[in-house]
Measured scan of single mutants.
Amino acid sequence: TIDDAFRAIERAIQAENEGRYREALKHFLDGGEMIVTAAEKEASQKVRNLLLHKGKEVLEWAEHLAEWILE
């Protein structure tokens, strides 16, 4: 659900702030994927587009974090 997705993102932010970057990455990926999944089930085109945009933002952040971890 969207609530689960945002809880995962909150955990990711907390982990990132505490320097637990790999854990943060996992939570960002989980949250982003949950948002995209919820968007695919959404009946309203406007809400679907907003959710897809937010999911994409979260997944892009996860990608940047992963690249930073690997440096």
Rank of each mutant, 00 (worst) to 15 (best):
V47S: 04
A66E: 06
R20F: 06
R20M: 04
E42T: 11
A15V: 03
R48E: 03
E33Q: 14
Y21T: 02
A5Q: 02
K56A: 10
T1K: 07
H53F: 10
F28Q: 01
R20V: 02
N49P: 00
L52F: 08
V58W: 13
R7D: 04
W68I: 07
K54L: 15
E16F: 15
I35D: 02
I9D: 00
M34Q: 06
Y21E: 01
T1S: 10
A39F: 09
E57M: 15
I35T: 02
A39Y: 06
D30K: 14
L70H: 09
L70I: 13
V36C: 13
E16L: 15
G19K: 03
L70D: 07
G32D: 01
L52T: 04
A62L: 07
V36I: 15
R22M: 13
Q45G: 09
E63C: 14
Q45D: 11
R22W: 12
V47Q: 05
E67M: 10
Q45L: 11
E10Y: 10
T1A: 10
L25W: 09
I69V: 05
A43K: 13
I9W: 05
K41H: 10
G19Y: 02
V47I: 14
A66P: 00
I9N: 01
K41L: 08
A43Q: 12
L52G: 02
I35Y: 07
E16Y: 15
L59K: 03
E71Q: 12
R48G: 02
E40M: 15
T37M: 12
H53K: 15
I35Q: 02
M34K: 08
L29V: 06
E18V: 05
I69N: 02
T1R: 09
Q14K: 11
D30S: 11
A43G: 07
T37G: 08
W61H: 11
D4E: 12
E42N: 07
R48H: 04
I35W: 06
A66Y: 12
E16G: 12
V36H: 08
N17F: 11
A24L: 07
E60I: 09
A43W: 11
I13S: 02
H64R: 12
L70Q: 12
E33I: 14
L25R: 02
F28I: 05
A43P: 13
F6D: 03
W61Y: 15
E63K: 15
A62Q: 02
T1M: 12
W61A: 04
R20I: 02
A8G: 02
A62C: 04
L70A: 12
E60A: 13
A62G: 03
A38Q: 07
G32P: 01
I2C: 10
N17M: 13
L51R: 00
L70G: 08
V36M: 15
E60C: 12
W68N: 03
L52D: 01
E42Y: 09
I13Q: 04
A66D: 01
K26D: 04
L51I: 03
E18K: 06
R22H: 11
L52N: 06
F6I: 09
A8W: 10
V47Y: 09
L50Y: 13
F6T: 04
A43C: 13
A8E: 13
R11C: 11
F28T: 01
G19F: 04
K41T: 08
I69C: 11
R11K: 12
K46D: 11
Y21H: 04
K46V: 12
R7V: 06
L25D: 01
D30T: 13
T1W: 11
E63Y: 14
I2D: 01
D3G: 11
L65C: 04
D4R: 11
E23P: 01
R22L: 14
E71Y: 11
E60G: 08
A39Q: 03
I35P: 02
G31E: 04
L50A: 10
T1C: 10
A15F: 10
Y21P: 01
K26R: 11
D3C: 15
